[in-house]
Structures are given as C-alpha cells and as structure tokens.
Design a protein around this nucleic acid. Structure first.
Length: 295
DNA sequence: CTTCTTGTTACTGA
DNA sequence: ATCAGTAACAAGAA
C-alpha cells in the first residue's frame, strides 16, 4: 500500500520530469473521486504549468504556477493507486487488448490499461497515468485556503521532521487507552505510517501492537521514535515496499520487501529469536508480530 | 459461496 | 464532548 515512503518515491520520480511541464489533454475515465467535476478539472488544467510537487503524509501535492483560484492539484493513492509517467519514447496507448488481463499481470504492462482512471498529457510530450484498481484514490483541485484547512485538520507532524520528537510522542500517548498500533496509524497524530511500517516499527521497538498507548515506558517511547524514523528512511532509500501492486512513477516495484521483518511473514521464523511470526487483527487491521520479541 | 485485503471517513455506542 | 471500535467504500484473490 502506498504509505509515506512510497508516495515520496513517486514524488521524487515525478519531480525529475514534471517541473515546468504544461498540461495538454486530460482524460478522466470511470472515476468518481474527482473534485470539482471531471469536465471542469480537465478544462481548467489545460495550459497550466507545474511549479512544484510536494508531499504531506501520503498526500501528493502538485502546485500550479501563476494560478490564483485553484493552485493545488492533490492526488491520494489510497490502497491501490499508481501514478506512472511515461515519456514520448515509451510505447503508449498499446493497452487495448488488456481488458481480460489480471491486475497483477497489468503491473508493468502498457498503458493505459483497464485500471487507468485518468491520464494527463503534457505539451513537452509524456503522459502521467493515474491507475487505481479499487477507485478509492482521489484527484482534487483546491484553493490555497482549502489546502491549508485539509493539512491543518488531517495531518500530524511528518515522522522525519523535528516536530516529531520525544516530547510530542509522549504527549500524544498520554492517557490514551487505544492500542499503540491504532495511535501510530492515526494520520492526525503522525502523518504517513500505514499498516506495513506500523507493524515493522512495533517489531523493531519490541512492543506488542495491542498494548495501550499510555502504557509505554520512557525507554519504549524513545525506541519507538527512533525506529519509526529508521524504518521510514530505509524504506525511502529502497524506493518503497511492493507487497501487492505499488509501483513508482517509472512503473517499477520497490525493494523494501527484502528488509521486512514481520509484515506478511506470518508462519515464518522471527529473524531475531527464531520463534514463529503470528498475525491477528488489531485496530481493524491485519497485524504481524513476534510473540517472543515484542513485550 | 465466504472471507480477506487496507486508507480513510462516517457512524455507533460508551 | 471525547474516545474507541467498527462498518462502509471497491473489486479482486484465495
């Protein structure tokens, strides 16, 4: 699933191609989560230039140049979204025979495919495809004040920035009876962790995911803070995790799968103690853990 | 056929 | 009012 490291990987890829790029044609296909209406969005974007691409948590923010009313184009990939950029030289529009192809097989195939919900061509040449099997993702054009409101109301500090420190972590865990996993998954408290990195961080800090947040000791909070930063950094370095269908903006898989210690390793042996990794549902999510290492 | 998958939000109940 | 837990969303895999 696209979490912070995956969205950051896509952002860095897109930056290389799209700064200064000018939108030409925009097509929205069988996709409801577009605001304002698809027809308006398509027309509005024509001839607009991309000034910058930033990120907050799992939200990708494309800033348009010299636009007063709606200067920000937001992309959220949710569970199965992909943003893939292809330049002129790649074989485009060869996907018409893919209607019966499975999604797994479609990863890396020609575009657009049956899961392409929108695409944007640029004056320079090149096309950006938004693919999304489950259609949970969204595209939203917003004003500066709307963006401020979205960020202020829904996104806590970035794990790699200094606002995410021991004092802050202590404060958000204080008095909370919810499981620690639920707290670190809450985007309003920490922006960017999802199921993969939450499980990995709790394993690496040797904390059972269902422990009440307020029960963490000072040394556990220190450790958790440190490993969240470590695992996010390492995952960005590895260009993210492809468990099912995440791909970067080049259409390629991430490499962090090889460094996963508990996620999707249920039934296999713990790399630290040799006990069997287990899986159960915590905070409504499949949760992987070592019954021996995590206290 | 049922069950599972997950990011986020809406809802429910305490 | 606040918090915690869960259903819903979509669509495919097992």
């Amino acid at each position: 699933m696209p979490e912070l490291p995956e969205v950051e990987t896509v952002r860095r890829d897109l930056l290389k191609h799209l700064i200064g790029a000018v939108f030409q044609d925009i097509k929205i296909i069988n996709f409801k989560n577009v605001a304002p209406r698809a027809a308006f969005l398509a027309k509005f974007l024509q001839a607009k230039k991309i000034k910058d691409i930033s990120r907050r948590g799992k939200l990708l923010i494309v800033q348009l140049e010299a636009v007063k009313d709606f200067p920000y184009l937001l992309f959220h990939l949710k569970m199965t979204g992909q943003l893939i950029y292809q330049d002129n030289k790649s074989s485009l529009f060869g996907g018409h025979s893919l209607s019966n192809q499975s999604f797994e097989a479609a990863v890396g195939g020609s575009l657009p495919n049956k899961f392409t919900r929108a695409y944007f061509s640029f004056k320079q040449g090149g096309v950006l495809f938004f693919n999304d099997l489950r259609k949970f993702g969204y595209i939203k054009l917003v004003s500066a004040s709307q963006l401020q409101e979205i960020l202020a109301n829904n996104y806590g500090p970035e794990p790699l920035e200094k606002e995410f420190n021991l004092e802050y972590l202590t404060q958000i865990l204080k008095n909370k009876t919810a499981p620690i996993k639920a707290v670190i998954l809450n985007q309003k408290l920490i922006a960017g962790l999802g199921n993969i990195y939450a499980d990995e961080a709790l394993f690496r800090s040797q904390i059972k995911p269902w422990r009440q947040a307020k029960s963490l000791s000072l040394s556990e909070r220190k450790k958790l803070l440190e490993v969240i930063r470590e695992v996010i950094k390492a995952a960005i370095k590895a260009r993210g995790t492809t468990f099912r269908n995440f791909v970067d903006a080049r259409g390629e898989k991430g490499n962090f799968m090889q460094q996963l210690q508990v996620y999707q390793r249920q039934g296999q042996l713990c790399l630290v103690c040799g006990d069997v990794i287990l899986k159960k549902k915590i905070a409504g999510r499949g949760t992987h853990y070592c019954p021996t290492c995590q206290k």
